[in-house]
């Protein structure tokens, strides 16, 4: 693949970066997709809970544990406790807010509005509680090295850690959904919600756990991404857009959809800037050469274009269930 101006190591480096970006999109999109599949609520507040996860992680790590245990242990404690805290928070939120709209008129739309409201409320709430400037949260010392380094290729430890963690989490989630009783109930509810109710199964408990699970995934993604990006009250707004694209492309109501969608779009995002650096000259319809700067700027817009094309050709997404939006 050492095509033209692109070295092999450069290509691998971009693959690696795309895998990191894709892993986060997969985790977020799965949370979004699980909640949507079972409850029919498009969670516009997903990004806000992701942001909250990062802030909770900062508090647990920097304010509580790091001063006593050191930054490494502080970080591990944060990584372990944030999903638990967010899981509990999600369940409480479902119990006292979301559950009030069940069996009302237009309950799904009410759910969307509630979550949209959270996406506005939570950032300002966080600013009130934690202050307006962002919070420092850095790669813990134990991960500050490179696993492999040559030329432009630099496989850093923390990014590798995020890929592995995301992979383990996806595997665990798969086991949960396909091999446990809870997962069976979630799949049954996603598949035929009326039938589950007719059988006399206590769905409210399943819904509460599922909502908690989705929020825990969002919060965990937030704390895991914090050392790489910035911890800021607005961090959730931007990634939410990309997560929606992943879910739309991969397909709502499926497990494999968000996983494949996230990984493909991650690579698309990372490899597009390389196009302008190959030996191949790309021209537009007037014969003007499209320069490298175009491909660098395009990597974000391309995600939207892919989404538009998918929506035109296959509205349910690559692996989505037909009629998921009915």
């Amino acid at each position: 693949m050492a095509a033209g101006g692109v070295e092999f190591s450069e290509f691998v480096q971009h693959l690696f970066l795309g895998l990191v970006q894709g892993s986060f999109w997969v985790l977020l999109a799965l949370g979004l997709s699980i909640i949507f599949g079972l409850m029919g609520i498009i969670n516009f507040g997903h990004g806000a809970f992701y942001m909250l996860g990062a802030y909770v992680g900062f508090t647990v790590s920097d304010l509580i544990f790091s001063p006593f245990l050191g930054p490494n242990a502080g970080f591990i404690v944060a990584l372990a406790s944030v999903p638990i805290v967010m899981f509990a928070l999600g369940m409480v939120f479902e119990r006292y807010v979301i559950s009030r709209i069940y069996n009302t008129e237009n309950e799904r739309f009410s759910g969307v509005l509630i979550m949209f409201g959270m996406s506005i409320f939570l950032p300002d709430f966080v600013r009130l509680l934690w202050g307006r400037p962002g919070k420092p949260f850095n790669i813990p010392p134990m991960f500050q090295f490179s696993l492999f380094k040559t030329g432009t290729l630099d496989i850093t430890a923390y990014r590798s850690f995020t890929i592995i963690t995301a992979a383990i989490l996806v595997a665990l989630l798969w086991v949960l959904i396909y091999k446990t009783n809870l997962g069976m109930m979630i799949r049954a509810g996603t598949n035929n919600n009326t039938m589950v109710k007719v059988l006399g199964i206590n769905v409210s408990r399943i819904w509460r756990l599922t909502f908690g699970l989705g929020i825990a995934l969002a919060g965990f993604s937030g704390v895991m991404i914090a050392p790489l990006f910035a911890v800021d009250a607005t961090m959730g707004e931007l990634i939410l857009v990309q997560t929606f694209i992943v879910v739309v492309v991969g397909g709502m109501g499926s497990f494999i959809g968000p996983v494949i969608g996230g990984l493909i779009l991650g690579q698309l995002w990372a490899l597009t800037p390389l196009v302008g650096r190959t030996q191949y000259v790309v021209q537009n319809w007037t014969g003007t050469v499209i320069g490298p700067d175009f491909w660098e700027k395009a990597s974000d817009i391309l995600l939207f274009i892919v989404m538009a094309v998918i929506l035109l050709l296959r509205p349910r997404g690559l692996f989505g269930q037909e009629g998921a939006f009915d």
Binding site: M184, M185, R187, A188, N191, N192, V196, I201
Partner: peptide
Amino acid sequence: NIFPKLSVLENIRIAAQSRKM
């Protein structure tokens, strides 16, 4: 009225489970 995306066993199983909370 069944769960088309669940296995045959799981269809039966989920109903059996509903008796045992």
